[in-house]
């Protein structure tokens, strides 16, 4: 089983976000970058599928600046076999731009499965994986919480409002991983050592991001300072009063 996993380098979810001098992007200074949390589920699923199949290859592909090499090493330390960096300094605003570069790398490479995270926690688009499936003309299921693959056919489950959709598909296919799909492993020391020797190919790519541009990036409006209505159960009537009379939500 040959599986590609597309991964992204993103600010740590704990990171404080400051706006950069251009007013259109964040100030990277002092920001810790990590492997996108949802991509960990994608890597774990790929590794488990390969282990179950008994043979195969897991390739981690990231598009981004040189800094993404570190992110790819994390995937290699978890157990991916090799990495590809599609190197560019362009930070695309349109998810279709990213999808095109990834699709060009994936097309014709003979992958049985291409896995993505559901969403990248920086641009929060939840789009790239599904767009790639359209560009490649492959079936896809997004935000899956459960996967079963037998005899070249797959069944995936995805959460929707008030239920779970069950989707059947044929391989090759594209899937995007939701939290809960599995428990991602931590890279062991041995894995980290081995990762240093695994192949990581760097390919410069040309991208043009058109039709959409950032006018302004700003911090969200602070919520107006709220108030503590009181302490303990005796504060309940004051809370109800406030919810009825001030907030008018009851």
């Amino acid at each position: 089983m040959k599986i590609a996993v597309c991964i992204k380098r993103v600010p740590d979810t704990e990171a404080r976000i400051k706006i950069g001098a251009d007013g259109k992007s964040i100030d990277d200074n002092g920001v810790k970058f990590v492997l996108n949390p949802y991509d960990e589920f994608a890597i774990e699923e790929a590794l488990q599928l390969k282990e179950k199949a008994g043979d195969g290859e897991v390739v981690a592909i990231a598009m981004g600046t040189d800094g993404s090499q570190e992110t790819i090493r994390t995937a290699l330390a978890m157990g991916a076999d090799r990495g590809v960096l599609l190197q560019t300094d362009v930070v695309a605003v349109n998810p279709v731009t990213v999808a095109k570069a990834l699709a060009a790398e994936l097309d014709g490479a003979g992958y049985d499965l291409v896995l993505f995270g559901k969403l990248a926690v920086d641009d929060d688009s939840q789009a790239v994986g599904t767009i790639v499936s359209e560009l490649l003309g492959l079936p896809s299921v997004s935000a899956i919480g459960h996967l079963d693959i037998t005899d070249g056919k797959g069944t995936a489950e995805r959460e929707i409002e008030g239920g779970v959709e069950v989707v059947e598909f044929s391989l090759p296919a594209v899937l995007t991983a939701e939290k809960g799909l599995n428990e991602p492993r931590y890279p062991a020391l041995r894995g980290i050592m081995m990762a240093k020797k695994k192949p990581l190919e760097v390919k410069p790519v040309e991208v043009s991001d058109e039709g959409i541009a950032v006018v302004e990036l700003a911090l969200p409006a602070e919520r107006p300072e709220g108030r503590i209505v009181g302490e303990g159960p005796d504060a309940v009537p004051a809370l109800i009063e406030a919810l009825r009379m001030e907030a008018k939500v009851l």
Partner: peptide
């Protein structure tokens, strides 16, 4: 941007090869 829309919007943008602003 519901469960359906989050799956459908990228497909439409991909097929039309046009920009997507999500959520």
């Amino acid at each position: 941007a519901t469960a359906m829309g989050k799956d459908l919007a990228p497909r439409v943008a991909g097929r039309l090869d046009c920009p997507l602003a999500a959520d």
